[in-house]
């Protein structure tokens, strides 16, 4: 579906943002892409969608370089940006204008998503809506396109609390074997229990990319007392319940993934995590 092979890229000639990023995405997964501010998450998504061209290495979309931006490639992806652009159109006009480009677009789904986001009765021009309202319309549209690859950059930014819950509810039933979703966000709590694969970008490299099952098989997340004392601790954090830790899981004990803890552990142990999840 999407393959990034040793991608190098930099906005500045003397400073590379990516030094050989390799990332292979399999269909049917909901990926969470995490990274610090300025790590290059949005840039990576732009390279995947052919909006930026790698300076070295290759970015393949459907087996062809993504920078070709052919109609065949583009009808299979939808990139929901963080900074949304909406033309001067009403919701119905927007649908009539852009839905024909997506062969699997479903009008009933679009109407349903709009209703769930409480946007079905909005009659004005979309560009006059608030940021959150624009985002909800575009979220509903992007989900209704039913494209094989949906890429969302900070989708919950600007959404109110009920809308975030609605988003999580919709997403939980959205992904299937034909659809792949990539969600790039800082707000890891919004991804909790939603994603089934995690990728962490740091310092120009993909330091971790694995399914949540593999992660919880190799790492244990929990309070100190519950864990085997000899396992290596990667990260710990004081909480009211005790010392919360991420540590090796040689006994393959079950635990629930804590994305925030995982991220901090990965950033502090880059080399070990890269080797562990290679």
């Amino acid at each position: 579906m999407i393959q990034l092979n040793n991608v190098e890229f930099g906005y500045d000639k003397n400073r590379k943002l990516f030094n050989g990023v390799t990332w292979h995405l399999e269909p049917g997964h909901l990926y969470g892409l995490l990274g610090c501010n300025g790590a290059g998450k949005t840039t990576l998504l732009k390279i995947m969608t052919g909006l930026l061209f790698p300076q070295n290495g290759e970015a393949l979309l459907g087996g062809q370089p993504s920078c070709n931006r052919t109609a065949e490639q583009l009808k299979d992806i939808y990139f929901l940006q963080e900074e949304i652009h909406v033309p001067h159109l009403k919701i119905k006009q927007f649908e009539e204008s852009f839905a024909p480009f997506y062969p699997n677009f479903n009008h009933e789904q679009f109407t349903e998503y709009l209703r769930e986001f409480e946007m079905d009765n909005m009659l004005g021009f979309i560009d006059k809506f608030s940021h959150g309202q624009k985002k909800k319309v575009m979220l509903a549209f992007s989900l209704a396109t039913n494209v094989p690859l949906l890429i969302m950059d900070e989708p919950t930014n600007g959404l109110d609390i009920p809308s975030k819950s609605t988003f999580r509810k919709i997403m939980a039933s959205y992904a299937n074997e034909q659809k792949t979703v990539i969600i790039s966000t800082h707000q890891v709590r919004d991804l909790h229990s939603l994603i089934d694969a995690v990728s962490i970008l740091d310092n120009g490299r993909m330091i971790l990319s694995a399914s949540t099952d593999v992660i919880t098989d190799k790492l244990f997340f929990g309070i100190k007392d519950e864990q085997s004392p000899e396992a290596k601790v990667f990260y710990s954090e004081e909480t009211p319940k005790g010392l919360n830790q991420v540590k090796e899981n040689p006994d393959h004990k079950e635990s629930s993934l804590d994305l925030e803890m995982l991220f901090n552990a990965a950033v502090q142990n880059k080399q070990e995590f890269t080797e562990m999840f290679q």
Partner: peptide, 9 residues
């Protein structure tokens, strides 16, 4: 970004 990702070559 919106224009360049419209599914047309």
């Amino acid at each position: 970004m919106h224009y360049l990702t419209i599914p047309a070559s």
